[in-house]
């Protein structure tokens, strides 16, 4: 049962499942801490690596959920014609965008880009250490020092790329909100949005919550084993 109709002809639909939302906001907190600890050195030796490993869990989870999850979580659905993405951005500029129950054509590419950069960041982190070997990734030593130095360099450059992309993401959300009057934040928190009855898009097809739980368990177990948590 997808929504309760109201007198004014709007109804509430569900857009984002609980796993997508948990994933998104956990990532926000994790990235905020990682940028802070990475730049200032605060709590760096104690927590930067651990939270980085958590991001790896989140990315692995998201990839699994992108295969087994709700229809709007599917990674395949993010790959759309780039011309459609450009058309969408023109619509955005013209305030012609509407509520969708999936990533919009441009947003889908943004999600893919973020996932790739996050993956690169978390994976390079596994294999590197600072020069004094005060903080070491779980798999530090797997490669020789030249490779390790190069991965260290990649980790630093990619950190800057990630921060740029995160800023772009936040700015774009603000553009949707302030310029096009489309609030994308609340649905990512509550999972729901109001739509007019005539324009209501189809809800995604959902997967049972348990499927997400299994994906999460697999991600935790896999990354945990790799990183020597147990």
């Amino acid at each position: 049962m997808s929504g309760s109709p109201s007198a004014t002809g709007t109804r509430t639909i569900r857009i984002w499942d609980v796993w997508i939302r948990l994933f998104h906001w956990s990532l926000v907190l994790a990235i905020a801490f990682l940028v802070y600890s990475g730049r200032t050195g605060e709590l760096f030796t104690e927590w930067h690596r651990r939270v980085g490993e958590l991001v790896l869990v989140l990315v692995v989870f998201r990839l699994l959920w992108g295969v087994f999850g709700s229809s709007n979580a599917r990674l395949a659905s993010l790959i759309v014609d780039p011309r459609a993405a450009l058309a969408h951005l023109r619509d955005l500029a013209a305030r012609r965008v509407h509520r969708e129950t999936r990533h919009n054509a441009a947003g889908g590419w943004a999600v893919l880009a973020l996932l790739v950069l996050l993956g690169v960041q978390a994976v390079t982190g596994l294999f590197i250490a600072d020069e004094d070997e005060i903080v070491e990734g779980a798999l530090y030593g797997a490669f020789g020092s030249d490779t390790s130095d190069w991965l260290h360099h990649v980790h630093h450059v990619n950190a800057d790329l990630l921060q740029v992309l995160v800023v772009v993401h936040i700015v774009m959300i603000a553009v949707y909100l302030l310029h096009a009057r489309l609030n994308l934040v609340t649905p990512m928190v509550t999972g729901r949005a109001r739509v007019t009855a005539e324009r209501a898009p189809d809800e995604p097809s959902w997967r049972p919550v348990g499927v997400g739980a299994v994906c999460a368990a697999v991600a935790l177990a896999g990354v945990g084993r790799l990183c020597g948590w147990f």
């Binding site: 050195g41 760096f44 030796t45 104690e46 020069e131 004094d132 903080v135």
Partner: peptide
């Protein structure tokens, strides 16, 4: 931990 942090802080 704090010793490592102190070293790193200067480096």
């Amino acid at each position: 931990g704090p010793v490592g942090n102190a070293c790193k802080g200067c480096h």
